[in-house]
């Protein structure tokens, strides 16, 4: 049994974390959920996650700042942005800052799972999820 993918999910919408935790655990991820960007950053500071999933528009700290922080602290970590405010300019900005992917809300659990699988593959630790199925 290979080591589980360590995933951090940050969204100020509590339901997102509540649902994503079981959804991602099912495909072999070890998920930590945060609603507060600050506590998430504290956690990121002390632990290297494989994948960080973050909302962009949050009070206090913006998802882009989280992305910057992760990119600086753990260059290897893949960051996936999820946002309800998806626009071309925002998407390009996130990609330029080094995001692994950018997903517009609303998305299905499988949409994110597919992205996680892709990221796992990019990390060299493929997981058992059919990335091509739609």
């Amino acid at each position: 049994m290979p080591e589980k993918l360590k995933v951090l999910v940050l969204d100020d919408e509590p339901i997102v974390g509540k649902r994503l935790k079981p959804a991602l655990s099912k495909i072999g991820c070890e998920v930590e959920v945060f609603e507060e960007p600050k506590s998430a950053l504290t956690r990121i500071e002390e632990k290297e996650f494989d994948i960080v999933v973050t909302d962009i528009r949050m009070d206090e700290i913006d998802g882009m700042e989280v992305l910057d922080y992760v990119a600086k602290r753990w260059p290897r970590t893949k960051v996936v942005m999820i946002t309800g405010y998806a626009m071309m300019a925002l998407a390009r900005e996130a990609m330029e800052k080094g995001a692994f992917d950018f997903i517009a809300k609303p998305f299905k659990p499988d949409d994110l799972r597919r992205v996680i699988a892709k990221a796992a593959k990019a990390l060299g630790r493929p997981i058992d999820f059919d990335t091509d199925s739609k």
Binding site: E13, V16, R19, A23, G84, A86, A104, P106, K108, P109
Partner: peptide, 13 residues
């Protein structure tokens, strides 16, 4: 999109 996303995720799960 935020409530919609919550509904989508919840319904799918």
């Amino acid at each position: 999109n935020n409530p919609l996303n919550n509904i989508t995720l919840t319904a799918h799960m």
